[in-house]
Nucleic acid binder design. Structure first.
Lengths: 116, 116
DNA sequence: TGTACATTTGCAAAGTATTGCAAATGAGGA
DNA sequence: TCCTCATTTGCAATACTTTGCAAATGTACA
């Protein structure tokens, strides 16, 4: 087996890619919730969001907590209600940073290499 | 409850975001495999990839299949071996398209709206 | 204080994922 | 053909996730 040369510039990927974030998005109901929130254009209550999918509202609340814990949503209490909204700028930045890192790592010519 | 206005431009998100792809990346061992492949700068065999993490090689083979089925890797047979590599361009494009869609959807001023 | 409403949490059931081992498959070379 | 090596698959055990219901929490308002 050949020795494995690794590209030092790729090491940043492990800081950028959070399995928790990807796992949070990797569920069809949570994707439906995200799209609902994106379309909605304003912070939404749990009850409003729950109308996106045929699940008990307690389940929606749990899905929202998973997305919030992954840093994808923020929650704000307002009286009896809780308003959720997408952290769109940080999500956009994270996705772009990962794309840039993969691109520079996987298709950069003349890159520095080190033996593993 | 206010009627929910939705933003027509966001509907593309549901085509772009594949829960399967995010779920595939959303596992620490699979992230380790991806980083190994990214660093490695060339197609790698299963045995080479397996050295990235302390798991039986059969488990690594299954993780690779999950990433391949999600469209993140391609596999090529070469004699007794199978070479895996990241579909880096399509992954990069997908991440950027999602970022662009979220950005235009969530922070576009003067957007078109329709009542849900 | 008591009632109404929105949301979250405890719980148990059902479903899905991950793991290691052992055996199967498939390809190259003696 | 037979042996070896790389990879994949069957299987069972274990662990984790998702779900709905019911109950708990927290807030507003009479």
């Amino acid at each position: 087996m050949r020795p494995i040369k690794t590209n030092a510039c790729c090491s940043g990927l492990s800081q950028l890619i959070s399995p928790q974030m990807f796992k949070a998005i990797g569920d069809p109901k949570r994707v439906a919730i995200l799209i609902r929130l994106a379309e909605c254009q304003r912070p939404c209550t749990v009850s409003e969001i729950a109308s996106c999918c045929p699940v008990d509202i307690s389940g929606v609340s749990r899905h929202l907590a998973i997305l919030r814990d992954a840093g994808i949503l923020t929650a704000t209490k307002l009286g009896k209600q809780v308003l959720y909204q997408i952290c769109s700028q940080s999500l956009v930045d994270t996705l772009r940073n990962i794309a840039n890192a993969i691109e520079s790592c996987c298709s950069a010519p003349g890159r520095k290499e080190t033996v593993d």
